[in-house]
Design a protein around this nucleic acid. Structure first.
Lengths: 171, 171
DNA sequence: GCTAGCCTGAACACTCATGTTCACAACCAT
DNA sequence: ATGGTTGTGAACATGAGTGTTCAGGCTAGC
């Protein structure tokens, strides 16, 4: 899943089955890729469903970010495949899940945790960006998995600013 | 450059030359990819060189972020190509440029703009992540190019936090 | 005009991923 | 044991991308 250029022979070997059997289950490579895309979407859906009821509190956001970080590989797979952009069903499902994430962020904004002037798309973008970055850091062994959600939370809410950064002049 | 899977015929057509001529200049596809990698590294080197002397102030960081945002496509190309990881020269040059970026960030940390507890790798990761995210937003038409550096600056220093986010409990 | 250099289209061989087919072995239920 | 299912290895055909060669055509400089 992490290597889009892998041949079907490699995939079959990695799956511990023969190439013939792989072709029985997925007639074409496209079928296989889509099946993995559906699976990745399932994973993401289920992960977000676990936290969709969270309130717009710091703890609620922390739960949300924990789920996004752990879904990072699935999201990365979906983002990297341009084919999914033209897949009506997957796109619809993706948007629906994204809206559930956005709902939590909006609650946090209403609660004053996030600046009222922050547009929806930038909340989402920074959340994705920071969470994905945190996941990469975990993969690289630079960040402990359990620390990732807190780091994303504090960075997204407070930035990296020190004592002299009280106001950055924008926002 | 933005489509790694493009055939050499497509590349030649896009370049307005024949496939034969393309092969004369770059014997193999590997040669071509590496040449583009060298070019992307050149671009990034030159861009950072323009701001390497900046101080650790908000304006200094803003200049740095402006340069990273504009270099995002070049960086993306370098990041997406695993072949470059094994290229000694390009890796060395990449690290050298990264260190020049880090120097500015460290100056800002010393000046108190960035929390003293922030590790180097997280400063770099968040800078890359936010800058790349901002560039994508520009590409998507959601963010004005001139606003991008300021948005990255304020988000990285202050986060998205509103009045109720005075302390997120981490860091 | 003539030559040298560069670009071009066309053709070719080669490799590799892909998709298909088929015969055979293992296994499971009856 | 028997018949159905499932997985397997092997072979084959196909198509795309790649790299090479070659015979012209074009322009620039002599």
């Amino acid at each position: 899943m992490s290597r889009p250029a892998a041949s079907l022979a490699d995939v079959a070997e990695a799956a511990g089955i023969s190439r013939t059997t792989l072709h029985k289950q997925y007639a074409t490579r496209e079928d296989l890729v889509r099946a993995v895309g559906v699976w990745a979407t399932d994973m993401w859906e289920q992960a977000v469903a676990r936290v969709a009821g969270q309130p717009g509190t710091k703890e609620g956001l922390r739960q949300l970010f924990a789920v996004i970080v752990e879904s990072a590989p699935h999201l990365g797979f979906l983002w990297r495949n341009p084919a999914f952009d033209e897949d009506e069903e997957l796109t619809q499902r993706y948007i629906a899940v994204e809206l559930r994430c956005l709902a939590i962020l909006e609650r946090a904004r209403t609660a004053g945790l996030i600046a009222a002037s922050t547009p929806n798309w930038w909340m989402l973008q920074t959340m994705y960006g920071l969470a994905y970055t945190a996941w990469e850091s975990v993969e690289a062994g630079k960040l402990a998995p359990l620390d990732a959600p807190d780091l994303v939370l504090s960075t997204l809410l407070n930035g990296l600013g020190g004592p002299a950064a009280a106001d950055a002049g924008a926002g």
